[in-house]
Write a protein that binds this DNA or RNA. Structure first.
Lengths: 167, 167
DNA sequence: GCCTTATATTGGCTGGAAGCCAATGAACGC
DNA sequence: GCGTTCATTGGCTTCCAGCCAATATAAGGC
């Protein structure tokens, strides 16, 4: 039952942040939408930022997972890779507010540093599996490259909305 | 004398955010470092985010201005452009926390939308002047391109610190 | 079935920080 | 000198994240 409430909290988080943005979403709102008590959110997640990042990793894992579902071992590795990239980009295109918030949090210097949650590991693992299909000699390095490429692509997709504001 | 206190507030903001980051800096801290009353900060700036963005635009204008100082009309337009780009990148390299925070705020979806403060206009104007030296037929379009290129370059420079966290 | 223990869930309390505002002070024109 | 405008102050209010003690519920041991 533990995962049940956790999952509801994460889904509510993604929904609300997509609708209102990060700052305009309170932990109380999230608890309300999830139909749970306020305290439970803090019980499962040690902070608002981490809650959103974990929720995003979960969402991306889920999205990627569904996108890869119809593929089979007879499909070429390139198709697997292309499908993966597409799924992430489509997510960014469909929920720009959410994705911009996520990237913003990654960019923002945090005192907490880097936290390896389970959802994050799952998502990363899935990506590495796809890369391994191509017979990559160094999957870790390739993963880093893909990661950067994905972030760059998302930026390009999302920045037009923000580009009125020069760097 | 109006500009005096305003400038002190902006300088204190840049200093503190560079040292501690955005969230760990309060308006009270800023007022204290500036040697002014807490309320004055809110008197001049309608919010913490806008305060930092305005301060950054001011800082970038100042930095760019100083970098261009030694150049003269006999210097080739390419040197003016290169110097401009270098000054911004050097700023990012020297104060990564500050610059990451700034980019993070640009990326973060804000309810306030886009605010054209004076400092912002000054900085943009200076950049356009540099572009005009090259005899650009469409300085506005070139400005947009330069802007995007600058943001991209800063990202590349700053992301290694954040790249442990996949998109 | 019954007690024990661990885990989930609740609601309230607290500290801190941003936004707001009325009062005070200083400069300046007249 | 006097009023007007702007700068400056400090306190008040509100809101929200983090914390915690109390309660409910599920899970096992016997």
């Amino acid at each position: 039952m533990r995962s049940r409430s956790r999952a509801r909290i994460m889904r509510a988080t993604v929904e609300l942040v997509d609708e209102r943005g990060f700052e305009r979403t309170t932990l109380g709102d999230i608890a309300e939408r999830a139909g749970l008590a306020r305290g439970l959110v803090s019980y499962y997640f040690p902070g608002k930022r981490i809650l959103l990042q974990t929720s995003m990793h979960r969402l991306m894992h889920q999205t990627l997972s569904e996108a890869l579902e119809p593929l089979g071992d007879d499909d070429p590795p390139e198709l697997w890779l292309a499908t993966s990239i597409d799924s992430v980009l489509e997510l960014a295109a469909r929920r720009p507010t959410l994705m911009r918030t996520h990237l913003s949090l990654i960019l923002a210097p945090s005192a907490e540093g880097f936290i390896q949650d389970v959802e994050q590991k799952r998502f990363g693992g899935l990506l590495r599996e796809v890369l391994a299909r191509g017979g990559a000699e160094d999957p870790v390095a390739d993963h880093a490259v893909l990661r950067s490429a994905l972030m760059g692509a998302c930026m390009g997709l999302l920045l037009p909305g923000a580009e009125a504001e020069p760097g």
